[in-house]
Each structure stands twice: as C-alpha cells, then as structure tokens.
Write a protein that binds this DNA or RNA. Structure first.
Lengths: 203, 203
DNA sequence: GTTTGGATTAACTGAAACGGTTAATAGGAG
DNA sequence: CTCCTATTAACCGTTTCAGTTAATCCAAAC
C-alpha cells in the first residue's frame, strides 16, 4: 500500500476507510465492488487503486486496522483492570461504542470478516483473530470475581447468552440502518443494568 | 410462476427452494445470482427460469412461502394456546426448529429479507410482514400471565433481550455454517430453561 | 419400435459490472 | 510559467449477469 495515504487529511482517510467498511460489511469479499467503495467514499476508483494496490490489500488493511483499533480502545477503557464482570462488560462495550463514533461499520465488518470463506482471505483472518479473542476470553474468566453472581445459574451459559444478545442487538441496529452511537450507548447501559440486576446475588 | 413446479417430486421442490433460500440469505437481492441458485440446487439455470418467470418472482415466492409456513408451524405447535410466557417461547422456537429441518436457511433469509433495500423488493416485503409480526407480538402481551415474573424486572426489556439473544445465536450458527437442528433444539431448550430460572419468581 | 409430450439442459445473447490501468487534468507552491 | 502532487475520466479485457432458444432426454402410449 501507498504510504501517502496517511498524509491525506484525517477526514478523508476516514471517509474512504468507512466506505470500505460499509461495503465489505454488506457484501461478501468477492461481491463487494471497489467501484461501490469509491462512490460511497466520494472519490474515484482510480484513487482507491492509487493508495491500495488491489482489493485484497485494502481488505487486509481494514482487518489489521480493526484489530489494532479494538485493542487500543480496550486498553484505553481499562477494560481488563477490574474484577467485576459487569463493569468489565460495560467498559468493553463502551469502548466499542467509542470506535463506532469514528467507524460505524467496524463492528459488523469484523463479525462478517471472521466468517469470510473466500480462499484469498480466509487463512489470513481467523488465526490472527483467535490470538486476540481467545486470549482475552481466558483473561476474562481468570480475572472476574464469580462470588458476586447468583449461585444457581451457570456462568458459561450466562456469558454466552449475553454475547448472543449483544451481537443480535448490534445486527438489528445495523440492518435497520440506524447506527447512532449516543442512542446505542444508552441502550447498552440499560441492558447492562438489566443483566446486573438479574444475575448478581442480592445483598 | 409455473404451476408445474408443484408437480415435481417434493424432494426436488425442496432442493431448489433451499438453494434459493441459501443464496438469498448470503447475498443481497441484487447480488444473488440465479446461476448460483441453479448450481446449488443441482439443476440448470434454464429450468429455474422455466418454473419461475424471473428472479423477482422467485424471491417473492420464497417470501410468501416463508410467511405461510411460519404461520402454519406456529399454529401446529399451539404456540398461542398458553398463558405461560416461557412455554410460549419454547413452542415458538421449537416450531422454528421444525421448519429448519426442511428449510435450514429460512430463518436467516427472513432476517435479511425484512431489511432488503432493493426498490424492486422493499415495498412488497415490510408491510406484509408487519401484519404478521406486529399482530402476533400484541397477542403475546395480551395473553401472557405476567404475575409469574420477578417483580423487579422490566418485562419489555426482558422480551427484547431474549429476542436479541435468539437472533444473535441463530446468526452465529448460520455464519459458522453448522445448522444442525437437533443440536440447535437442545441448545435452545438450555437457553429457555436458563431464562426461566432467571426471570421467574421463585416460589 | 415408433410416436408423443413434458422435463431438462447446453449453448447462446446482449448488456452490464468487474478489477485494474493509463494518460490526462486540476490546482496550489515556488 | 514551471513543477509537483493529488485526482480522475476514460478505457481495457474479462467475467458475470438475467433471460432465451433450440435441442435432447426419457418414459409412457400406441
């Protein structure tokens, strides 16, 4: 890729990248056209190819960029620096909301990229992501204080259920084309407070 | 469409329809090729056009078919003939699992079709679906006995959360390409029992 | 065993979309 | 005016698309 891309005004960089995140989250790799990305980003297709040598390179840049930004956001929000599960969940989701302000389609892009089946792409993706997610999931279970939970529920099921719900929620927001970070942040907090009330031991 | 389609052996009808559900649930309407459906269904593209005059007609048939089958399944499982929310939820989800045995991609097809933005399609879809879903959601809230729930939780939030989780769960199953109805049925039951324990008033 | 008729397809068509390239333009700085 | 960089319109060869046509396959009827 062409380093000059980074010398563009930040607004333009983001406009182009967001257009790409959007088109790649709506279509499979193969059926996401570079021309559509260009139009969506209000630049010419030729410019896209000027900065990114080809489609695959652009896709891979988006992926690496997504992982890196996610990791930074998690650190910035001190996500792992607590032993309270719901606090950790809140920090994790709020960090994702903050990413969403700059990159509204990043979350769904990742959701889709992880299951991308195109041979050109597949290999480079999953291994890389497993590094991040598996490790972090283990870290979570090591750190959290499970004594605060109700004794009669299965924590793994709870954990799974919560993440299904978050994905389902985000997907709905995304599909109905209303990604408004402020609103999502509020609704996420409502959900977390709800879970807290339901799953924590009463005192 | 050509009525002779229904005179085909049932196995073949389903094979073709399932191929179509699959391709349309992976791609937007515009980018779902008839040729891919044909290949997936092990018939020639020409045969597809012999039974369905064009792509739009096929899509609309799939949609009407999905709605109709869903309604029948809901009735068959006596979904609305109880005032216990979790019993109703179980019947509703098990009825969907039973559909899944014959039509593995129907659920995700519907999820996608509802938000389809192609002008050729959009209008004919949403209104039609709202009839079904809005009415049934209202019926649910009229029928269920809310006295059994914990007093300290917001039922609307619970309701929303549960459906986010189901969608998130199904999406994950679908994306990771492992739609095994028996397994899904088991896991759904685990989830429902989990919710029951969590949300119902203890006695 | 030949005819008939419906099921099925290979091969085709014209148009559009695709990834990627090229050669030219635009516009600001010196 | 000159230089330089960002930018694009126009283009290229290829592939893909929805939809068509004319031919084949095959079983049942005669």
């Amino acid at each position: 890729m062409n380093d000059k891309f980074f010398r563009l005004p930040l607004e333009k960089q983001q406009r182009i990248i967001n257009a790409a995140y959007k088109v790649f989250s709506e279509n499979s790799y193969k059926k996401a056209p570079m021309s559509e990305i260009a139009t969506e980003g209000c630049v010419s297709k030729a410019l896209l190819f000027h900065y990114f040598t080809n489609k695959k390179e652009l896709y891979m840049y988006l992926w690496a960029n997504a992982i890196e930004m996610t990791r930074e956001a998690i650190i910035e929000y001190k996500t792992l620096e607590t032993d309270d599960f719901f606090e950790m969940l809140k920090r994790s989701l709020l960090s994702k909301c903050s990413l969403m302000r700059d990159y509204p389609h990043l979350y769904v892009f990742c959701l889709r990229a992880y299951y991308e089946t195109d041979p050109e792409i597949q290999n480079s993706i999953q291994e890389n992501y497993n590094d991040v997610s598996k490790v972090s999931e283990m870290t979570v279970f090591e750190k959290i204080d499970i004594s605060k939970f109700r004794k009669d529920i299965d924590i793994k099921t709870m954990y799974a259920e919560i993440f299904y719900a978050v994905d389902g929620y985000m997907l709905k927001k995304y599909r109905s084309n209303c990604i408004v970070p402020d609103e999502i942040e509020k609704e996420i907090i409502v959900l977390i407070d709800f879970w807290k009330k339901v799953y924590m031991q009463e005192v």
